[in-house]
């Protein structure tokens, strides 16, 4: 069993796939900052932003269904924002007795909660498109072009190379454990031992993974040395951005500013 399907990259030949990864990364950042900058309750702006994301999804030939299905994975965090519907002062919608308290749901509270949910949902969709249409080496290259330190990019690159190998090892460890301690058929059922014992076993597995990691790191270093590695991660120089790329970046910036202007206009 392998975990290669974890990689969300979907190879393709769409406009979005072929776009220079530096431009793609910059535009994604620009878009997500714009979404974050729109005030709460600017619904007209949210619709515009959602329209942009959905058109990018169609252009990328990933399909809206694929992106939307992945985007719901990020929802548990909404729990942190949920109490806002009670705490933001304003016009009271409903008063519900709960235990000994009276919970009041306010209109601005609901508005702010829904705004956070929608903004978060739009942002995560764009991030999914970026990850699905850009291979990791391309992304690293873009990060380097955006002046992320060389050492950090080198570590990221090596991490990506071995992430699936070690995820496979983690899976093997887990399979070995369930073979020995008896997996429970129902979710969360008792699978042998006390909680402390189970934690100790999991700790042993983690330690094991670390030992394998250290040893593998040593072997990789020796192999790299044998092939002439001298501590310098070399890469092709990035070709300069063309006029078309600059126009795309400029156009993106213009659209973002326009949406922000509209957003601040409609949000009273």
């Amino acid at each position: 069993m392998h975990v290669h399907f974890l990689d969300p990259h979907r190879a393709g030949d769409s406009v979005i796939h072929r776009l220079d990864s530096r431009v793609k990364l910059a535009l994604t950042l620009m878009f997500i900052v714009t979404v974050s900058l729109t005030p709460f309750g600017a619904w007209a702006a949210y619709i515009l932003l959602l329209a942009i994301v959905l058109s990018v999804e169609l252009l990328s030939e990933l399909g809206i269904g694929y992106v939307v299905k992945r985007s719901v994975l990020a929802t548990p965090f909404l729990l942190a924002a949920l109490p806002l519907i009670f705490t933001v002062p304003g016009e009271v919608l409903v008063t519900a007795p709960f235990l000994s308290w009276n919970l009041t749901i306010t209109a601005p509270g609901v508005e702010r909660f829904l705004s956070i949910a929608v903004k978060s949902w739009i942002s995560v969709q764009m991030a999914i498109v970026l990850a699905a249409t850009t291979s990791f080496p391309e992304l690293l290259w873009a990060l380097r072009a955006l002046h992320v330190p060389k050492l950090l990019v080198a570590v990221l690159g090596l991490m990506w190379r071995y992430i699936f190998v070690l995820a496979d090892e983690a899976l093997r460890l887990m399979r070995a454990r369930s073979a020995r301690s008896g997996a429970s058929p129902q979710l969360g059922g008792k699978t042998g031992g006390s909680i402390a014992w189970r934690a100790r076993v999991t700790g042993g597995m983690t330690g094991n993974l670390f030992v394998r990691g250290f040893d593998r790191g040593d072997r990789i270093y020796a192999a790299m040395r044998a092939r002439g590695y001298d501590g310098e991660a070399r890469a092709f120089a990035a070709p300069p951005l063309q006029i078309g790329h600059w126009m795309m970046l400029g156009g993106g910036l213009l659209v973002c500013l326009l949406i922000l202007f509209i957003a601040n206009l409609v949000a009273r």
Partner: peptide
């Protein structure tokens, strides 16, 4: 550099390891 790369992958994979506590 190679060691940190591999150990970052170890942490990432180590986050997959879990143990059941109670109630799912």
């Amino acid at each position: 550099v190679p060691e940190m790369g591999v150990l970052a992958a170890v942490i990432f994979a180590g986050q997959m390891l879990n143990f059941p506590v109670a109630g799912g």
